[in-house]
């Protein structure tokens, strides 16, 4: 009732009055069209984070949460700070960062080249198809023990893990991109007297680029998982190695401190990939 009364009075106010007087809003305008302020969102996120930490700390101190398994934020912060001072945090993070990025780059490039290569021969593509799909269906993490045996406990096995886990999915994504090419477009370019190489360079590769770009984001997460699992199996350094080691010696704070580092690292990687992605989209697809 009061809403209706308000609506009537504001309509009577004319144009200039209409801007200042509070006007009624439909539910559509109020809820669906409303955009939250960016600063308010950030404040809210930060507050939620602090509240979670506080609840955790209070829970641990009051005995509601078993701090033997869950540790507590203050303890974790202390452990983390020791790591910062001894430099272990940087060394381990950098180690995992390096193996992830190298595995990601090799796997993505290798998969892209492999996926593109299938365009050149239908015979070769048809023969390879079941093997690729078989390898894709298999959980690559199961290979970790063999990979560590073959490539040793150094960075090589972590790179190999990242490569193994990203190369097949990239191959399939790229090949799907290649196959989605507009046949008429290919026909048109051939009708202009183009060679196969020209069709490949001018039509096939650009067509596959969006698929390749979309693979980046998935691949970085996969490569990180590969590197961490490789470190679990056997490693001299790395965040995964620290988490595994801390787990075996029941140093729960150390596990959490390294998980914190790991989440910072993965966030950093996602931001970097996001930048790379928009750069590529702008460069190749002319999108903002």
């Amino acid at each position: 009732m009061s809403h209706e009364a308000e609506a009537v009075s504001s309509r009577g106010g004319g144009i200039s009055a209409g801007i200042k007087t509070p006007r009624p809003k439909s539910n559509w305008l109020k809820h669906e069209m409303a955009v939250p302020k960016p600063w308010a969102v950030n404040v809210g996120r930060f507050a939620l984070f602090i509240i979670m930490l506080l609840l955790w700390e209070i829970g641990a101190r009051s005995g509601l949460i078993n701090s033997f398994f869950w540790s507590q934020p203050v303890e974790i912060a202390r452990t983390w700070w020791i790591g910062v001072q001894t430099g272990a945090v940087w060394q381990d993070t950098l180690y995992t960062f390096r193996s992830t990025v190298i595995g990601f780059v090799l796997g993505t490039l290798g998969g892209t080249l492999l996926g593109l290569s299938f365009w050149w021969s239908k015979y070769y593509a048809r023969i390879s198809e079941p093997f690729i799909i078989m390898f894709e269906a298999m959980p690559k993490l199961a290979l970790a023990p063999i990979i560590v045996l073959v490539f040793g406990i150094g960075i090589g096995s972590k790179i190999a893990m990242g490569f193994a886990i990203t190369v097949v999915i990239t191959t399939l994504t790229t090949y799907n991109g290649v196959r989605s090419v507009d046949k008429d477009l290919v026909r048109m370019v051939y009708s202009l007297g183009a060679s196969r190489m020209q069709v490949f360079r001018k039509v096939i590769v650009p067509t596959a680029i969006p698929a390749m770009i979309s693979a980046l984001r998935i691949n970085i997460g996969l490569a990180l998982t590969g590197a961490i699992v490789g470190e679990y199996i056997g490693s001299e350094r790395g965040l995964g190695r620290m988490i595994f080691y801390a787990g075996q010696t029941y140093e729960i704070s150390l596990i959490w401190a390294n998980i914190f580092n790991l989440s910072i690292l993965s966030m950093l990687l996602y931001v970097l990939i996001g930048k790379l992605e928009s750069l590529l989209l702008k460069g190749f697809m002319h999108q903002k």
Partner: peptide, 9 residues
């Protein structure tokens, strides 16, 4: 052809 077949990129 009827389709313009311009390369979108």
């Amino acid at each position: 052809l009827q389709k313009d077949l311009l390369l979108p990129w």
